[in-house]
Each structure stands twice: as structure tokens, then as C-alpha cells.
Write a protein that binds this DNA or RNA. Structure first.
Lengths: 84, 84
DNA sequence: CATTAGGGTTAGGGTTCG
DNA sequence: TCGAACCCTAACCCTAAT
């Protein structure tokens, strides 16, 4: 019995994306320690960030291989502005 | 980002064990410089040897945090596309 | 300057649960 | 049943002390 699963919100995902943009991938603790993102990710650990980034499929450069699948056809863009 | 993880092979572990048997623990550089083991451990550093020896035997526990800082003035828009 | 000891963090395979 | 969320821990990093 692990902890209860808590779905990621759009705000959390945006904070994670912004954090990766600022620090690069693999800097999960840095992102968490950044007061700019911390308040959004208060309930997430560095390992959670890593895991989420992985299953977001955001491998920055790797867009081929057809290993990515989306069953839906509609999409929406989320914007957020972050100071670096 | 750090180096890509490279799993230790049985041969590498054997070389490390033999090295410790010959020189004793804490003599990582000596082991690495020994031509008897060097060819097997060509991709490993003295620190790698120390870390591997640690989790091969004596198990310890850990978990703490650290901190870092950053201040800037630039900003960026983060875009995220969500499939529905 | 080079090396080690030990705590901290990440990467990736494995597991769980809605 | 499937996959997002979570777990396990070997492998790797940081750095004070020598």
C-alpha cells in the first residue's frame, strides 16, 4: 500500500516544464528547491518530477520512432509565463 | 545530466573483488592502476569502485536534502499541448 | 593537486491501482 | 486491461577532509 495516487494538474505540469526549461532535465531537486516552482510542486518529490517527465514523453529531441501514441485527436495549448 | 547508467558486469565485479582482496578496501586507485584489473575496469573511476563496493556489501541508509538558489530577470512563455 | 568517505540525487526497471 | 503514478535501489554526483 503506497501513497494514494494524485493526478498531476496542468499547473504542476507547466511548473515542471518551466523548471526543465530553466535547469535542464535531470535537475529535479534544483527545480523543487526553486521558489519559483516550489509552491506549485509542494506535494511532489524529485522522483515524482522525474517520473512525470518520463511519462509525459518529453524527451526534447526524440520525436520519431512512432513509440508515442495518443488516442485522442483534439488538443489544447496551455500557456504560462515564468521569470527566469 | 550525468553519465548514462552502465550496469556492472560480472567480470567487473570479479575484478573489483579481486582487487580488494589484493590491496584491501579504500585502495581504489591502486586497484585501477593494477594492470591485472585495469583492462576490465577501463570504464570505471576510483569513485565508481568505491560506490560499487559499498552497495555490494555493507548496506547503509540515507535521505536528506540540500538547497540551491537562483535569481534572474528574464522570462519565458511555457507552452504545453494536451491531447483530449 | 590527487584521492577517499560518506551523504545526497538521479535513472531506469518494476509495481500498483484507478 | 492499460497506463499514469508510485516504488526500489544501483549507479552516479558533490565535496569536506586529508
Amino acid at each position: 500500500m503506497g501513497k494514494a495516487k494524485k493526478r498531476w494538474t496542468s499547473e504542476e505540469e507547466a511548473a515542471l516544464s518551466a523548471g526543465v526549461y530553466k535547469y535542464g532535465t535531470g535537475k529535479w531537486k534544483d527545480i523543487l528547491n526553486d521558489h519559483q516552482f516550489a509552491h506549485c510542486l509542494i506535494n511532489r518529490s524529485n522522483v515524482d518530477l522525474k517520473d512525470k517527465w518520463r511519462n509525459l514523453g518529453c524527451n526534447a529531441s526524440n520525436s520519431q520512432g512512432s513509440s508515442r501514441r495518443h488516442t485522442g485527436s483534439r488538443y489544447v495549448f496551455i500557456f504560462q509565463m515564468y521569470f527566469l
